[in-house]
Design a binder for these strands. Structure first.
Length: 924
RNA sequence: GGGCUCGUAGAUCAGCGGUAGAUCGCUUCCUUCGCAAGGAAGAGGCCCCGGGUUCAAAUCCCGGCGAGUCCA
């Protein structure tokens, strides 16, 4: 299996008397100083040896431990780098959350495109691993939120060039030496440490890796990322893919801060070492008070559970039975003792997770990271309720946010409270729905079908256990199948194949052409330029022209392309679209300027100006929204047009009209400030260090150098064209807001000339409405309201009049023909009225004991037939016969039917035939 | 990014092609020293919006808007 065996033959191991051994239990290869050792030391081959027996000289708190680690590496030439946000999608678009320190440097640094912020560096990176959510609290060692302490070195091979960093900083020997030395300095017993060979594979990369185990606890993983997937590669690894060596090779280490802290304290579970105050607080709050004997059992159980190989939640039950057995305790009793504690451990961990998420600006939503935060919050709330913790959740999250040093604690609390309220509403809705369902099934012997349970969960978020508890009050059975969540997944079906957007084919023909010089960055106000035509491609309609340089802005960053003309002395082609394909800018024209010709380019000034106004305005509106709504406001998307622009921002509640007014107000203040809008080309790492990751609101640009736009106090990485002073925007008018999904609000606005036009359009609409009502514009709302009320009143009055008319018609006999049908008098009458009148008249006739057959020719031919109770005439059949004569159909209940057809000429004939029809139906 | 569910009286919901309903709340009256409660009468609906199918749409279909939920 370990075909990378030779990779582990380190000088450091040899020089320090290590030997390579094979584990007698699992067969893993490992390195140790202890010749007598037989197992690799990792559970389940061996048990925890540090509980009540700390492995370091001193006890450390979480922050003390972090400081020890970082300063150790700082003293050894590593630069200390500030942690990145837990929302990894802030700087990369392939993942949602930060799960390891190396995520900070993927993909651009690890691939060698961009230099790291420092080399070598050390960091303690907060991470969130949702996949561990079920284990938290139960295993004693899993946490969803953790800090991965690390030291990283980025190397390139001697013979490789063209990378953003060069040469070797250090590699395997130095890495192991640093780790070993750190352990030694902390007072670890060096001959108890094992270094297990465990090649790492992940995401198309691979390399040798070492797990560092001490007294049964995995303290670190040292990964030597140096291989990439390659069908022709010479290394076949455990995922059955072949790999070859890369030009870059990276030291990627991970030291779990929580585990090191735990090791230093030797508490029964990691949670007690990490959040002692919070665990105490929660225990007290939930009134968990154990006797000495019970405490002893819990303590022993914790120690033993660490020894077992619990990697998923199914194992926990089995493990618990095993532990109960070993302690000689009844398993139910053990479960009852442990459950509240496990909940408390999980609550502490989840609160920390939430503090990280909301602290870093994640907004609860039904998509993306927002959805993950919602899931964690709801789960935490359920745990707190089950465990009897009555402290408000926002307080618990705030305890963690305070400890973690977040400054936006008010917003965090507000987010938690808003989201809890939403959850409460969902639960209310859910229980009402389930109660109703249970009532339906009450008295039934059948249980509620599984399909219904799946539907309740999938569409309404109602957990099966909630259905169970409510249904039991109604004595309704519920059977939740073991594979419930698999059934839910099945409902979602196969994931659709990912479609590659085209571009692969089109890009090929532009390959080999030089990068087009982008003049539009040099002087954004210039609108004319000269250039050389490098290539012309025939298109179905028109041509694709490639120049050596251009002033034309290609579509990108949410900004549409420029239009204009390209002219030679002989030809003038209109430019209708401009695209950028791999650094080559392609102009779509309706005429061929000729390859090798000099052309004069002219930009459509009005269109460009409108785009510039809208682009700069987008930055200003975003910044204004941030000031009005809070620091968590971030762009979720944007589109700038000619007549309007739209900006999507993340926000956790719906936005009020007053807030919109404020945003508009603040944005226009920025315009009136007439501050200069500056562009700056800057080193990417420097920009990140100086302005943070919020500069990437519009997307993540490539390259070592990035372009920043400073507008007022707002700074963003942006490739668009901008005006030179905010005053040039002229005016900003917010036209509309809508909630495009949970947690995302779209602001549509117009800037400059478009703002004036939009205002004029609105005003025009209002004036027209005022004219129709013949009032001044200010009175329109009041008048409209009055008219609407009046309209409703008249509708009601009309109804009443119809009723009265019907009564008169019915009592007066009128022009109707009266016949006898099997002893019951029937009135056959032609009334030119609408359905309502016919119905009312028919009802009135029936009240007097008549059969009513009414016909109207107002809208085609329509019939109503009504029969008093107890008379054996089927109204539906009568209407069916009559309607057939006018080319239509009809029906209804036996005592009251309606119908009709398009042929109103046949109405009179049909009514004449009515007596026969009635008698026929009676006889049948 | 994808799936699913729901928009009907002030609130909660039923109706699911054929005369718009229930419960609570509201108004007035009766019973009561008063309150809780009970009795009687009544008001309150662009059945989310726009198109289509149909003799007929709250109901079926399509689109939009709004809300909720599960997943990646």
């Amino acid at each position: 299996m370990s075909d990378l065996a030779e990779e582990y033959e380190l000088d450091y191991f040899e020089a320090n008397g290590f030997r390579r051994m094979e584990c007698s239990e699992c067969g893993a290869r490992f390195w140790t100083r202890d010749e007598t050792r037989v197992t690799c030391g990792e559970p389940p081959c061996e048990t925890y040896g540090f509980i009540d027996n700390p492995g370091f000289d001193e006890e450390f708190s979480l922050s003390e431990m972090r400081e020890v680690f970082l300063s150790f590496f700082q003293e050894r030439d590593h630069e200390r780098v500030d942690p990145y946000p837990v929302a990894a999608n802030r700087w990369r678009d392939d993942v949602l959350l930060t799960q390891a320190s190396i995520y900070d440097f993927q993909p651009l640094v690890t691939s060698g495109e961009t230099p790291p912020p420092a080399n070598p560096l050390t960091i303690s990176q907060p991470c969130i691993r949702m996949q561990d959510i079920d284990n938290v609290g139960k295993t004693g060692r899993h946490t969803m939120a953790f800090e991965m302490m690390a030291h990283h070195a980025f190397n390139t091979r001697e013979d490789a060039d063209g990378y953003a960093y060069e040469g070797e900083v250090y590699w395997k020997d130095r890495t192991v030496e640093l780790c070993d030395t750190l352990l030694g300095e902390l007072g670890a017993q060096l001959d108890e440490i094992t270094y297990i060979e465990d090649p790492w594979v992940g995401g198309g990369n691979a390399g040798p890796a070492i797990e560092v185990i001490y007294r049964g606890l995995e303290l670190a993983t040292l990964v030597f990322m140096s291989l990439e997937q390659d069908p022709d590669g010479g290394y076949l690894l455990k995922d059955d893919n072949s790999y070859s060596k890369m030009d870059t090779y990276v030291v990627d280490t991970g030291y779990g801060l929580e585990r090191w802290t735990w090791m230093s304290q030797g508490t029964p579970t990691v949670y007690e070492a990490v959040y002692p105050e919070m665990i105490e607080f929660l225990k007290e709050n939930a009134e968990i008070d154990l006797s000495d004997q019970e405490s002893a059992i819990v303590h022993d159980a914790a120690r033993l559970s660490g020894n077992l190989d619990i990697d998923d939640v199914d194992d926990v039950e089995a493990a618990r039975a095993d532990i109960a057995n070993q302690l000689g305790v009844d398993v139910t009793r053990l479960r009852r003792l442990l459950a509240p504690l496990e909940a408390i451990y999980a609550i502490a961990d989840h609160s920390r997770t939430l503090a990280y998420m909301f602290g870093d600006g994640i907004v609860p939503s039904n998509v993306g990271t927002g959805y993950l935060s919602r899931m964690v919050l709801r789960r935490t709330k359920r745990l707190a309720d089950d465990a009897g913790v009555d402290a408000p959740l926002d307080e618990l999250v705030d305890m963690q946010a305070k400890r973690l040093g977040y400054s936006n604690r008010d917003t965090i609390r507000d987010v938690v409270r808003t989201e809890l309220e939403r959850y409460r509403e969902t639960l209310d809705r859910g229980s009402r729905r389930v109660e109703q369902l249970a009532e339906e099934y009450a008295g039934d012997t059948e249980p509620i079908p599984t399909g219904t349970l799946v539907e309740l969960y999938d569409s309404h978020g109602i957990q099966p256990d909630m259905v169970e508890s409510i249904a039991s009050e109604y004595d309704v059975a519920v059977e939740v199948p073991d594979d419930f969540y698999a059934l839910v997944a099945k409902r979602h079906g196969e994931e659709p194949e990912e479609q590659d957007s085209n571009g692969g084919e089109g890009a090929a023909q532009f390959a080999g052409l030089p990068e087009t010089d982008r003049l539009y960055y040099e002087d954004q106000g210039r609108l004319e330029f000269e250039a050389m035509v490098l290539e012309v491609f025939d298109r179905e309609e028109g041509y694709d022209v490639v120049l050596d340089q251009t002033m034309f802005y290609p579509e990108g960053g949410g900004q549409p392309s420029d239009h204009g003309t390209l002219s030679t002395d002989d030809v003038t082609g209109r430019v209708t679209d401009v695209q950028i394909v791999e650094d080559v800018i392609v102009h779509s024209t309706d005429d061929n300027p000729g390859k090798g010709e000099f052309v004069r380019g002219k930009i459509d000034a009005g269109r460009r100006r409108r785009h510039m106004h809208h682009h700069t305005a987008t930055h200003l509106v975003g910044h204004a929204a941030r000031r009005v709504l809070g620091d968590h406001i971030r762009q979720a998307g944007a589109q700038k047009g000619t007549d309007s622009a739209r900006l999507d921002v993340k926000h956790y509640e719906s936005i009020t009209r007053e807030q919109i007014r404020q945003i508009e107000h603040v944005a226009n203040e920025y315009v009136m400030d007439n501050a200069s809008v500056k562009q700056e080309w800057i080193d990417r790492n420097e920009a990140e260090a100086k302005y943070g990751f919020d500069i990437y609101q519009g997307g993540i640009p490539e390259g070592e150098q990035i372009r920043l736009i400073h507008a007022q106090e707002d700074t963003q990485a942006c490739g668009g064209t901008h005006v030179s002073r905010t005053g040039d925007v002229g005016a900003i008018k917010i036209l509309n807001t809508e909630r495009i999904q949970d947690g995302v609000i779209r602001l549509t606005f117009a800037a400059g000339k478009a703002a004036i036009e939009a205002t004029q359009t609105t005003e025009q609409t209002l004036s027209e409405a005022a004219e129709v009502l013949d009032v001044s514009p200010e009175s329109v709302p009041e008048t409209a309201r009055r008219f609407f009320e009046e309209w409703k009143d008249r509708g009601k009055r009309l109804e009443e009049l119809k009723e009265e008319l019907a009564a008169v018609r019915a009592s007066g006999g009128g022009s109707g023909e009266e016949i006898d049908v099997g002893g019951t008098p029937a009135i056959i009458q032609h009334i030119d009225g609408d359905m309502d009148e016919l119905r009312a008249t028919a009802n009135a006739l029936v009240d007097e004991g008549h059969i009513a057959v009414l016909g109207s020719g107002v809208d085609g031919a329509q019939f109503v037939v009504a029969v008093p109770q107890g008379v054996e005439v089927n109204a539906g059949e009568v209407v069916g016969e009559l309607a057939e004569k006018v080319g239509g159909g009809g029906g209804g209940p036996p005592d009251f039917a309606q119908g009709g057809g398009p042929d109103d000429d046949a109405l009179t004939d049909a009514l004449q035939a009515a007596p026969d029809v009635l008698r026929q139906v009676l006889d049948a």
